[in-house]
């Protein structure tokens, strides 16, 4: 019920996007998205609505940061 799945947009028609999760396709509304999305973008989908675009770069940055912090910590020892 609470599950919001990161899903890849494979097609957009008007306010409906077709998403693909592990090969399963489904149509979801993009009415609530605050910014434009394109085919290939990832969105969080919850109960038939895309509720937020996933910022892959922000995710990569966070991972890089955590790896750097851990490495710095290991160097200190």
């Amino acid at each position: 019920m609470c599950l919001a799945v990161p899903s890849k947009i494979v097609e957009i028609k008007d306010t409906i996007a077709t998403i693909d999760v592990h090969g399963v396709r489904r149509d979801v509304s993009i009415l609530l998205l605050p910014e434009d999305v394109n085919v290939g973008d990832y969105v969080l989908v919850h109960a038939g609505f895309a509720i937020q675009k996933i910022d892959k770069e922000a995710g990569d940055d966070a991972m890089r940061l955590i790896n750097e912090l851990i490495e710095m910590d290991e160097l200190k020892e």
Binding site: L32, L33, P34, L44, Q52, I54, D55, D61, A62
Partner: peptide, 18 residues
């Protein structure tokens, strides 16, 4: 916020407005 790839400080204003 450790979920930067999905969470923006202001959230989804359009959804909040709805």
């Amino acid at each position: 916020n450790v979920y930067q790839r999905a969470v923006q400080e202001k959230g989804n204003v359009k959804a909040q407005t709805a």
